[in-house]
Design a protein around this nucleic acid. Sequence first.
DNA 1: CATTTTATGTCAGCCTTGTTGACATTCCAA
DNA 2: TTGGAATGTCAACAAGGCTGACATAAAATG
Lengths: 182, 182
Amino acid sequence: MPLRAKRTTAGEDMAEGPNNASGGENLLFLTDEQIRKGIEAMFFAYRGFTADPDRILTSQGYGRAHHRALHFINRTHGTTVNNLLAVLGVTKQSLNRVLRTLIEDGLVESRIGRTDRRERNLYLTAEGATLERALSEAQRERMRAAYRAAGPQAVAGFRQVLEAMMDDEIRTHYKTIKDRRT
Amino acid sequence: MPLRAKRTTAGEDMAEGPNNASGGENLLFLTDEQIRKGIEAMFFAYRGFTADPDRILTSQGYGRAHHRALHFINRTHGTTVNNLLAVLGVTKQSLNRVLRTLIEDGLVESRIGRTDRRERNLYLTAEGATLERALSEAQRERMRAAYRAAGPQAVAGFRQVLEAMMDDEIRTHYKTIKDRRT
DNA sequence: CATTTTATGTCAGCCTTGTTGACATTCCAA
DNA sequence: TTGGAATGTCAACAAGGCTGACATAAAATG
């Protein structure tokens, strides 16, 4: 067995992924060492991914949690608190702390729901939108550079693997972005 | 302008990534919406990425920081504290707290350096290696599933983009895994 | 209409994990 | 011998998770 990769898992005998063209040494991408490299790549890349916005945030007295809130409020204007909780995957107490400071500081506006008055609809103020844009632009710049360096094919693969790595319920949240007005 | 993607950045006019085969609509992968989707994909995927080991960790009274320490001690047996600090990117006080509990609990052994006796060389004990394997296996299982679902080409692209996203100094740490004894 | 459920907010307290600053120890190297 | 590097430790603090308990308003349901 020359090029055949050593595999440790049992598994249901290779369910043949979509891009698995020819057989044989293609299994190398499932080697334990390959997987391990992928794990470390995720760890290190995520650090880079958050580094730039983190700098802006600390300089303004905010944290990563504020960034996440701003991002998703911007993504879906008028989203409710419950909705945000589901997407962010934190407790309402935790989110509330973050949200309160953002509202106090005038970055986020909380309007009572029109159909259901129990709900609060969340919007970015002009100031909030400005900060969100700064954070997002810093992060986008790095991702854009990475995309450009890697090329379109790599980007497609990148997205495929990431999507496959998500939890199922989350994947639906992720996909709702397609319904977004540009 | 039919298929031409709307780009926001100035940038040095498309430095032609390696895989950028034909011109034109390939630039779609640099659209703001594409970049935004990539950002969210990173966020959601990272959550999935850490979910499984996190469950094990909490059940054992440890946190993600312990996992990271175990992982990198396992990756390079006998690494020094300073070395670990550089890779993990935290302060020595923060690492020390984590390391101390691992040593007290008998998962990690700290031996005084042979050439430089100021240094401590860190090793996993049998018990530590067992936990590391459990954590790592949970995480690998998910990544393996994602890899299998996406296929080898996608995996290659995944890794390319992640690597391009890292900070420069970190990328070297990442690449040292190639020198690893299997 | 009375009751229950839902959405949200808030208080209090706890944990992990990051931070700074100060200081002690050990020991290599100039 | 002395300066500086590597390491450890103590203390204090902050962000941001968590749980539990409780309050309020409004919708939903009987």
